[in-house]
Amino acid sequence: MTGNPFELVGLQPRINTTVAPVKRRHGRLPVVSMILLGLILLGCLFAELFMNHDPLYLNLSNLSSPPSSSFWFGTDPMGRDIYSMIWYGGRISLLIGLLSAALSTAIAVIYGSISASAPKAVDDGLMRFAELVMSIPSILTVIFLQAVIGQSNPFALATVIGVTSWMNMAKIVRTEVQRIRKSTYIEAARTMGAGFWYILFKHLLPGLIPAIMFMVVTNIGAAIGTEATLSFLGIGLPVETVSWGSMLSQADRALMTGNWWLIVIPGLFLVATLVCITDIGNYIRKENNRKCSNL
């Protein structure tokens, strides 16, 4: 043995070890979903480039006309071009999805973190309250809040959906924060002199993101679905505000008159978007579980 503090005795030391780039097989990427969702997103973002009619123009000479070379997806009972409405209204639907998911995530992170750090009695109280809210069917809460607000614009709707869909995520945040707070590396950081904010931004929040990412994505999809449900029921967006949900609100009449394109086309886009989002969310969840168990 030499004076070197660490020397393996009896083993051939490896000289010139080159580290191969770390390659990991990350499961199967949901390529189809990502491409499809990407196309829908691009179409909605750059709706002006794709629309061939004014989506708000009431063409009274073409009421409920079936798909044709002029109106690719047909027109609705008010003479609006459905092809143009899909891209134009998709914006509103996606906006509601993103806004309400952002709102519910913010509430969940704050609520869950407070609950995890609070004394046991407060923690219990907060969690029981979350369960109480969860036990009420969310559609009921949404209808109630929507009635209280009394406005039917996208922002009001996003707020209502956001404040009714944070509970599950808050529970996950609470468990994660409790788990991470107990880790020795947090204690180690404290002994090095790290303050509250350092630990929050460097350790707690980055640790949370993988665990809640799939819920955030799922919440976007769920919010788009809820908007469509509410609009279909007539308590969401009014018919003159174009969104996938408000387009579907004409579906009941369309069934009786046999205007299938009124239901099938917005429905197809809605279902495709939701399936893609769910697929991506599932991939994120599996990836996160794999990482956690890959010790």
Binding site: S183, T184, Y185, A188, L295
Partner: peptide, 11 residues
């Protein structure tokens, strides 16, 4: 301080 549980001592 050096902790006993090395696995949870590193982020």
């Amino acid at each position: 301080i050096i902790f006993q549980d090395a696995v949870s001592a590193l982020s």
